[in-house]
Design a protein around this nucleic acid. Structure first.
Lengths: 349, 349
DNA sequence: GTGAAAGCGCTAACAC
DNA sequence: GTGTTAGCGCTTTCAC
């Protein structure tokens, strides 16, 4: 790409009187008639060094008048490490979920004085390495490596040069602590929602792709059935592409199996099933009850009827990721922290 | 919150041999038997200073062996400004769209050697000020201030201390350049899609909330009708809450008005309308053609039939935001850059 | 061709 | 109580 554009001009800036030379601590010191050390002490509320009320006041005044802002770059250089936490994501954009991870991580980091350095790599290994390199150069406190759906990830070697926590993914070799959704528990919750409404013939429409979600949710389903004393029936488990189309296409089979309730692998599948059921004149939840998974707001909250589902705790994943990274919470044995998937009750059960 | 947790432990780190003292340029210099200046020159490929091939080689070798990484913090301190671009967003999480803005901004920033510092403020003014302050302290090159839907924004004063570009919002006072979607053009495109399919009685289901989207899309609709020589009919414009429920509720009115095609304010409204139409035994597009707006993937691509719509160019908004900020593209007269909303053809027309 | 040295803005001993 | 000073890791003249 061509970087130089002759017509280009710096935006806004010029007009508002941004002084050419930024105000430094020295300027403040001079203006207040004290030394830089004194300024530093009052700026950082240093408990050890006790500064007289008079000087303190003069410094504060000078700071205000000059519009002084501490230079974080210099501060970091001295302390040897920055207040940055890197977040490497394979797909910030492709999914509505990633945003929640960022949000959670950002909120928690913020609380502890840290700032997020975000890099989106779209799964591109080169971009990933470059991003990690740049984070390392900025002496980040650590890196959160996240994926947009729960899976095993092969983590870039460079990551091991700093502290890492995997978010929504895990390393099979156990090279780093991970925070992931508790798929089994989620599957149990979803199924129990149906069980509690009195259903006994409950179908599960799982995904065709092998994954922790596939296995975990199915296991949860079996456990819940088991706990309720209902025998597992192979004829009630279906696999479908994890999208609306998949749910729609499987409708006939589900109905034919005599299910009075369906646990869908995700909300999109449920949305497809809604269409299929409606076309057959079946109504929800009176003829067939449905629960989804993910709690994908745009869909779940606005289906007719609104979909009861189980939420993927993306926000918490982000929060816990930074907590583990900062050592605020202990890393559980096994290195993998499983986070509960809370049920979200609406009207499809 | 309590920061100290007795059971807490640093993650992974310990086991892999991260040296206690990071490798600095001085270490490399010593290992290569040259001065730090020389190392600096080869690291930065300095054209001016000509380093002998021999020394250059020794330095490279030392860098490799020691696993040296330049310290960006120090580099930034010297140069006086960092390679950071701040992105302040009012809702990273609440919407699937924001991700695209981040993604675009991030990609473009990256290309030019910049890194994104992301702050999510959820519209909280205090958080916003704190975020901006922190960015300023890190001497960011500039700040992108973005909102999750196109609107006028009152921009925090502190922003004016640096270069700013507004993304998906604008300042009524024109205090800063802005990049926004071209709502009028989008409205025209959407309407034309219907016109081109031969429709003459085209309804528009607009939103009830006043906004640039409301006004712009309506105007585009009128312009397209006009260009096609079709008189504007007040009876064909409806307002509805910009959600599935709104679209569903307005179905009767739309059908009663004799419309053969409907331009919906957004994809969610279209989704609701789909339900309404289906319940009345009307099929899409044979009985009624529908176009949406936004191109909200999860919905639009998977409705039955897939929804033809017009895309909100969030990714481009992000890209252009940083281009304006870096002065790579000129700020248009009026300070507001309007970005086209490209049609996305699927099967509902 | 390469090195010495002066800082960038700030912190933290340690004097006074 | 407050000032002096020595760096943090790096860039960049300017000598040699």
């Amino acid at each position: 790409m061509t970087d130089a554009n002759p017509k280009a001009r710096r935006p806004v800036s010029a007009e508002n009187g941004r002084s050419s030379h930024p105000v430094t601590m020295r300027d403040v010191a001079k203006a207040a008639g004290v030394s830089v050390a004194t300024v530093s002490h009052v700026v950082n509320d240093n408990r050890n060094a006790r500064i007289g009320e008079a000087a303190r006041e003069r410094v504060r005044k000078a700071i205000d008048e000059l519009g002084y802002r501490p230079n974080a770059l210099a501060k970091n250089l001295v302390s040897g490490s920055s207040k940055f936490i890197g977040l490497v994501a394979d797909a910030i954009a492709t999914t509505p979920f990633a945003g929640q991870i960022i949000h959670g991580a950002q909120d928690e980091a913020w609380k502890h004085g840290y700032v997020l350095l975000v890099a989106n790599t779209e799964g591109n290994r080169a971009a990933e390495d470059e991003a990690i390199g740049m984070m390392l150069e900025h002496k980040v406190r650590g890196i959160l490596y996240s994926t947009w759906y729960h899976r095993a990830a092969e983590i870039p070697r460079a990551l091991l040069e700093t502290d890492v926590v995997l978010v929504d993914c895990f390393s099979e070799a156990g090279e780093a602590p991970a925070v992931v959704p508790d798929e089994v528990e989620g599957g149990r919750s979803a199924t129990r929602l149906l069980l509690d409404a009195g259903h006994r013939r409950i179908a599960i429409v799982n995904t065709t792709t092998p994954s922790p979600a596939h296995d975990g949710r199915l296991q949860g389903y079996r456990e819940a059935l088991d706990a309720a004393g209902i025998p597992f029936d192979e004829a009630l488990v279906f696999d479908a592409r994890p999208e609306q189309e998949g749910g729609y296409d499987v409708t006939d089979a589900v109905v034919a199996a005599g299910a009075t309730a369906v646990f869908c692998h995700n909300d999109r599948v449920a949305m497809g099933l809604y269409d299929g059921l409606r076309e057959r004149g079946l109504s929800i939840p009176s003829d067939v009850a449905v629960v989804g998974f993910d709690n994908q707001e745009v869909i779940a909250a606005h289906l007719r009827p609104p979909l009861t589902t189980v939420a993927l705790p993306h926000y918490e994943l982000g929060v816990l990721g930074v907590r583990l990274l900062l050592g605020l919470d202990p890393v559980p044995d096994g290195g993998r922290l499983a986070v509960a998937c809370p049920p979200v009750i609406r009207s499809s059960v």
